[in-house]
Structures are given as C-alpha cells and as structure tokens.
Simulated assay, not measured.
Amino acid sequence: MDPATLIGMAIAFGALVGTLAMEGSTISAILLPAPMLLVFVATIAVGIASGTIRDLMLAVKALPRAFVGKPPKPHETIDQVVAFAEKARREGLLSLEQEADNEADPFLKKALQNIADGTDGEELRNLLEDEIATRTASDRVAGKFFTTLGGFAPTVGIIGTVVSLTHVLENLSTPGKLGPLIAAAFVATLWGLLSANFLWLPIGSRLRRLSDLEAQRMTLLMEGVLAVQAGSQPRLLGERLRAMVPANALPKLSKAA
C-alpha cells in the first residue's frame, strides 16, 4: 500500500481545520448539511449524466485503488522475467507452461502460455500490445470520471451560493439575520472548491498515475517475455530491462546487480 493519497488529503484537511482555528472559527461553521448535500449529490449526479453507467461502475470499482493501490516494483518484475529466461535456457520454452499454470497475473499467464504453445513472436507482440491498450483505456475511464467531478464541483458550488443568496434577499427586512445567512450562502462555494481540489482531482490524478505505472509494468513484461521467446541471454536481458526503467525507480541493489 502506498499512503500518498491518504497522507496528502489528511494534511490538506488538517490545514483547513488549522486555518479555521487561527481565524477564531470552528469546523462546524462549514459543516452545513444543505450546501454540502447540493454540492456532493449534484456533482456526482452531473458526473453520471456526462458519461455512461459503465463509466460509473468502473469508477466505483477503481475508487479503493486510489487509497490502497500498490504501485508495481519494476525490479521485482525484472527479476521475475530473468528467472523465466534462465529456466527457458535450461529446460526449453515448453517448461514455461508450468510457470503459466502457477501464475496469478492474467497478462503474464497469457504471455507464457502463448510462448509455450509456440505462438509467432510478432503475433504475440500484437496480442500483448492490444491487451495493454485495452487495460489502459479502461483504467483511464475511472480517472477521467473523478477528474470530471473536479471540473463540475466549483460550478455546482456557485449554483448553491446563488440559491442561498435568493433566500438572503427574502430576508432584507431583518438585517440581524443577513450576516449569518450570507456567510452560510458562501459555504456552498467553499465546498465546491474543497471537494474539487481536496478530493476529486487528487483521486483522478492518482488513478491515472497508477494506470501509467501498471502500463509500464505490462510493457516491461511484454518486452521481457518476447526476449525470452527469442532466446535472449538472461544477464543481458536483465540489463536491457533495467535500461527501460528510470534509475530512481530501481533500488541500489538492483541497479548494481
């Protein structure tokens, strides 16, 4: 688990609470049910309206990944592929069928099974590239959904403020109530901005980042297993795969290996 999202959101909301305290206010001043109901419910509703039900289902399914998703470790992927190369060099490509049977990752399982079945290298590359493209497109739908919510939320907040201000104008005859009513009116705008920048946009960006990292892992696997099929020497294969990964993504031990 990578806690970056949880840590970032906790600090952001902590800064908000700290600011309220320094201004002599409390968190209860902005926890008003009416504007929060409009901002959150209406934002999600227009987000659903801007896409499809399938988009919503993908976004809901992907939401936990934004908080508990574990970024792949390239050095582990490289070590795994090098181990396949060593086994194929000792026992032949047919030995990878046993590895495919024990593999939990559907992408890698499919690649190893096709190698054991003798699939042509170019055909296998096309198959795996299509698999990566499809997976990436599906993952980005979820990220785009939350980014779209981040775009709608501030405008919905302004709508809530306008609605509340109409109520303020109805009470011009009672000046004593105007201050609290005006303050409450702007809470909707506040929650529109907060939800966009503290929730929806970070979640969308996080999901896109995880999608990019997963696509990199799958590409690394694809190049690795294709090299194994071509009979690449394990040590050279490991060096080639490490050259495809940014240095800061590899531990010192793996870089020195």
Rank of each mutant, 00 (worst) to 15 (best):
A83P: 00
L237P: 04
A249S: 05
R209V: 15
I7S: 10
M218A: 05
A104Q: 10
E129M: 12
A230K: 14
A104T: 09
R208L: 06
K70M: 09
T26E: 06
L108R: 00
L169E: 12
I48G: 06
V162A: 09
A10N: 12
Q233T: 13
S164M: 08
E97G: 11
I53D: 08
I53Q: 11
L226K: 03
I44T: 07
A133Q: 14
G204R: 06
R242S: 00
R206W: 06
I203Q: 12
R208D: 12
V68Q: 15
T134V: 07
L58I: 14
E76M: 08
P35Q: 10
K252Q: 08
A153G: 10
I53W: 03
A12N: 14
T19C: 12
H167Q: 03
L124I: 04
L250K: 01
L112E: 08
E129G: 07
A188T: 07
E223F: 02
L58P: 12
G18S: 08
P71C: 15
G179H: 15
F146G: 15
M36E: 06
A247W: 00
N102L: 13
V156M: 12
A137W: 11
L236P: 02
S25L: 05
A116D: 09
S195L: 07
N126F: 05
A215E: 13
A12Y: 09
E214G: 02
T119L: 04
L201G: 09
I27D: 09
E99I: 05
R235G: 15
D55K: 13
V162R: 09
G14I: 03
R217P: 13
F107C: 01
T174A: 05
I115E: 07
W200L: 07
Q80F: 02
L207I: 02
V228A: 05
I78L: 00
F146Q: 08
T155Q: 03
G157I: 03
L201D: 12
I48H: 09
M22Y: 07
F145M: 10
S205H: 10
W200E: 12
P3F: 04
L172P: 04
E99S: 04
K110W: 11
A215M: 03
L199K: 01
L253H: 03
G204M: 05
I78M: 01
E170A: 09
D212Y: 00
